[in-house]
Nucleic acid binder design. Structure first.
Lengths: 256, 256
DNA sequence: ACGTTTTAGAGGAAAGTACCACATTATTAG
DNA sequence: CTAATAATGTGGTACTTTCCTCTAAAACGT
C-alpha cells in the first residue's frame, strides 16, 4: 500500500498489530488467519522476537507491554531478588494516606507492584506506564498520571508538560530510580527523564532513591541532584569506600 | 501481613504481580517458583482469569494490558473485521502534519493501530493507554498524553485535569468512539469518559465518530453531543430508518 | 474434637506445540 | 531465460500442556 514490501513484512506487521490489541496471540490462530502454515508464523515470531518487537511465548507470542523496557529480560533477570527486596523495604517508608510521586524505571516499577500488594491507601502521581498499570487494579490507590510526550522506549511521558504539571502538586514522598550513584549524587543517561526526576524531588518532603548495588560508583551523563538532596537511600548492600563514608556522614538515611 | 489471608490468595497475588513485570509467565515456571504443582497454578490462573485480572494463554498467563477492556475478548471478537474496516477508512481522513485527538475505546484503539501502520507524520493527543502504546513505536507520530486519574477498567485517564489539559490545544481532527448512536446523537455509559469526549470535540475543527453498526439505535445514560456536532461518521453499514434519514439530512458526512 | 468444605496433588489419556531435515515454491539477480 | 537465493510448506518425532477424575490433606465452623 505505502511501500511495496514483500508479503513477509506485511504479515509480520499484522502480527505486531494484532498483539497491540490482544495481549497474546497463538501461533495456530495466526497461521489460520494469515493463511500460512504454522511454521512460517513461528519463524516470523522468531524474527520479531530478535528485533525486540514481540516476546515469544509457548503457544505463540505476547506484545511488549508499554512501560517495560525492550531489553527488560536480561537487565532484569539479573537483579530480580535484589530489586524485590529493595521494593519491599521501600514500602515500609509509606504510610496510609500519603501522597507519593513515583518516577519511571524498572526498580520503581517493582516498587509499585509491592505497593499494590500491600494495599495501602495512597495517592500516586507518576509519569510511568508500568507504575500506573501496577496500581490501577488496586482500589486502595488513586493514580494521577502526568501529561507529556510519550516515549515508547522509556515507557513513560517526559517533557515540559510533565515538569510543569508536577509543580501543581506537593507530595509526602518521592521515589526515584537512577542509572548510577557516586559521591556527587545520582546520575542518569536520559536528559528528559532527569528533569522529571528533579521536578519530583523538588515537590516532595522526602526524597527516596531506590537503587541496586550494581549501580554504585557508576557515573553517567547527567547528575540528577546532589547527594544531600536525598533523604533516604534504599538498596541491597551497604556501599563501600568513599561513597559509603560520604553517605554515613551526610543527612541521607540508608536502608539495606 | 496486612490481612491474614490464606496462602492461596497470596499465591494469586504473586502471580498477578509477576505478570505486571514480565508480559507473560508460564505455568510450569510459576509452579516451580511458588513450590506448588502445575495443577494448582492452572486453577489459580483460571480463577484470576474469571476475575479479569489476568488473561489465560496456552502455556500460562499474560497480564492484562493497560488500555484493553477486561471483557475485550468477547466484545471484540465479534466485530474485528468491521472495526478494522472502519479504522482503515478513518485513516483516509488524516493528512500528513495533522494534529489529532483520539479518545479511549476499542474502536479508536484499532484506529490508532491502523494509523501507526500507515506511518503518516502526525501529532496525537490522547487519554488512552492503548492508543499511546499503538503509536509509541512509530517514529512518525508524536504522542502527547493527557494528565488525569487513571482508570484501570477503561484503560485511560479521566477527570478535571484531563479536560483542563485539552483546553490548551487545538486539533485538526478529533476521533471518538461511543456506546450508542441515536437521532439525538452519540451516547455513552461512563460520565468521566463523556466529558473527555466533549472536551476533544470542542477543540477540533472536524469531529469524527467511529462506530460499528451494532451500536445504531442504542441509547445510554449520557449524550455526548448533538448529532449535528459531528462532521463525520465512519461506520460499516449505512444506518436505516429515522437515524439514516436524519444523518442524510444533516451536516454529518457518512463514510461506509 | 468432629465432620464438612475447601484446597492441593497424582496419574494418565488426549491434544497442541516445538523442532528438525528436506522438498517445493517464489523471488531476485545476472 | 536461467541460476542462485530466499521463503514457505510437509512430515514425523519428542515434548509440553491440558483436562479429567480421584485421593489426600488442610482449613473451617460448630
Amino acid at each position: 500500500m505505502y511501500l511495496p514490501e514483500g508479503k513477509k513484512a506485511r504479515r509480520q506487521r499484522a502480527i505486531v498489530s494484532e498483539l497491540g490489541l490482544s495481549p497474546t496471540v497463538r501461533t495456530s490462530d495466526l497461521a489460520r488467519r494469515l493463511g500460512v502454515s504454522v511454521e512460517t508464523v513461528r519463524r516470523d515470531i522468531e524474527e520479531l522476537t530478535q528485533q525486540g518487537l514481540v516476546s515469544r511465548t509457548y503457544g505463540g507470542a505476547a506484545g511488549r507491554q508499554l512501560g517495560l523496557q525492550p531489553a527488560y529480560q536480561e537487565r532484569e533477570a539479573l537483579a530480580v531478588e535484589e530489586r524485590d527486596a529493595i521494593a519491599a523495604k521501600a514500602v515500609g517508608l509509606v504510610k496510609a494516606g500519603d501522597v507519593l510521586m513515583i518516577d519511571s524505571g524498572s526498580t520503581t516499577a517493582r516498587f509499585a507492584h509491592a505497593l499494590a500488594r500491600a494495599a495501602i491507601r495512597v495517592t500516586v502521581i507518576t509519569n510511568c506506564f508500568a507504575v500506573a498499570q501496577a496500581l490501577a487494579m488496586n482500589d486502595a490507590a488513586r493514580v494521577i498520571f502526568c501529561p507529556g510526550d510519550v516515549s515508547g522506549r522509556e515507557g513513560g511521558v517526559y517533557g515540559s508538560e510533565t515538569c510543569a504539571f508536577l509543580k501543581g502538586f506537593y507530595a509526602d514522598v518521592t521515589f526515584i530510580g537512577a542509572s548510577g550513584l557516586t559521591v556527587d549524587g545520582p546520575t542518569d543517561v536520559e536528559t528528559g527523564a532527569t528533569w522529571v526526576k528533579r521536578g519530583m524531588i523538588d515537590r516532595a518532603e522526602r526524597q527516596v532513591l531506590l537503587l541496586d548495588s550494581s549501580k554504585f560508583g557508576r557515573r553517567h551523563l547527567e547528575r540528577i541532584c546532589p547527594l544531600d538532596g536525598l533523604s533516604d537511600l534504599v538498596t541491597d548492600r551497604k556501599p563501600d569506600g568513599a561513597l559509603g563514608e560520604r553517605i554515613a556522614a551526610g543527612p541521607t538515611a540508608l536502608h539495606v
